[in-house]
């Protein structure tokens, strides 16, 4: 990993809009060829960061390096990055072919060469033979592919994607997630992907940067982010987490440092066998939500406080789980699944 080249480097990058610190002194390194996601709620600075890389916006202070070159003050047309926009931004007065060829036309590539490349790109995104259509005749998923082809035809060093799947329905979105990832592997270009959907980020990314209020909370692989959240924010934003702190933490673990535990790590219907590495807690089930594949329980602990527990419905039916409401339970989990926050 370490011998890979740095594609994009943020060094103390700030972007202020009046009093609002949209991006607040961010340091970030994105490596060549990786699928890197900027994950965070709206207004966390992820889209602004992307726009800073594209050149639509300039940092208030700090530097952005693209393959070692400081591009902070370069206009978009002088940066070898391309963008897939959230609304696709396909030019409505041009055909699909003209849209895809736009970058080459600007570079004054010969017409025959342009047409060959367009055909090639249309094959790549599985839209063969669509060059004569207008964007308005295409479905959302197809427009998405055209936007991808229009960006990729320029062989950018980095491809920027601004929530490109946000407008698609769930099934299509899941399909495009897989397609995008495999496309990225085939073309070998660095993808920087902005999303607010943690599941999407976990599915596709090599690494994720979690943004909150203009700052990066944590950078890491999906597994690191999920299993070792560095901050309370990450623990809460990526997946669901039970945070145990103060008195309760002390009672359970002997230390008052804050811990997080994922709901699926807690055993409810079939408790773990006793042992030195197993932790117990008693409580009663206050709420049951049957979700088909699994059931979510809200357990009120005897000592006060709630824990969310998720269990797959391997042996239980919807009938069984609803009957559990109000029942006493004996919860258990492995000690090493409790993650110290910030540790």
């Amino acid at each position: 990993m370490s011998n890979e080249q740095t594609a994009v480097l943020f060094s103390k990058v700030c972007r202020y809009f009046g009093d609002v610190k949209a991006v607040d002194s961010v340091d970030m390194e994105i490596r060549e060829g990786e699928f890197f996601s900027l994950l965070g709620p709206s207004g966390s600075g992820k889209t602004t960061s992307l726009r800073l890389i594209a050149g639509f916006d300039r940092p208030s202070s700090g530097n952005i390096l693209l393959y070692g070159q400081d591009v902070s003050d370069l206009p978009p047309y002088e940066r070898s990055v391309n963008t897939v926009f959230q609304d696709y931004a396909l030019f409505p007065h041009m055909t699909i072919g003209e849209n895809i060829a736009y970058g080459l036309m600007i570079k004054k590539v010969a017409k025959a060469e342009r047409e060959n490349r367009v055909t090639e790109m249309l094959n790549l995104v599985q839209l063969t033979g669509m060059e004569k259509r207008k964007p308005s005749q295409l479905s959302g998923g197809q427009r998405q592919r055209v936007a991808l082809a229009r960006a990729l035809i320029n062989n950018p060093k980095v491809l920027l994607l601004d929530e490109p799947l946000g407008a698609l329905d769930l099934k299509l979105r899941q399909q495009m997630q897989v397609e995008l990832k495999s496309l990225q592997k085939r073309v070998g270009i660095t993808f920087i992907f902005v999303t607010h959907d943690q599941e999407e980020a976990l599915t596709m990314s090599d690494r994720i940067a979690v943004f909150n209020q203009g700052k990066i909370e944590q950078v890491g692989s999906p597994a690191e982010i999920y299993e070792h959240p560095a901050t309370e924010f990450v623990a809460g934003f990526v997946g669901t987490s039970n945070l145990i702190r103060g008195e309760r933490a002390k009672r359970i673990s002997g230390s008052d440092a804050t811990f997080s535990i994922r709901p699926e790590k807690i055993h409810l219907t079939t408790p773990l066998e006793e042992g030195p590495d197993v932790i117990y807690a008693d409580g009663s089930i206050r709420d049951v939500v049957y979700l088909g594949l699994y059931t979510r329980y809200l357990v009120e602990l005897d000592g006060g406080g709630d824990l969310v527990v998720v269990e797959q419905n391997l042996h239980t039916t919807s009938m069984d789980v609803t009957l559990l409401k109000g029942k006493r339970v004996h919860l258990s989990w492995k000690k090493h699944h409790m993650r110290p926050i910030g540790g």
């Binding site: 594209a54 047309y77 391309n82 963008t83 931004a89 409505p92 736009y102 320029n154």
Partner: peptide
């Protein structure tokens, strides 16, 4: 985003005006 996309694809301000803004 149309003008941004054009600029992103390598067009200078004049080219973006001629190819995108003016026709639209």
């Amino acid at each position: 985003s149309f003008e941004e996309a054009s600029s992103d694809l390598g067009a200078k301000a004049g080219e973006t005006f001629r190819n995108i803004t003016f026709p639209l």
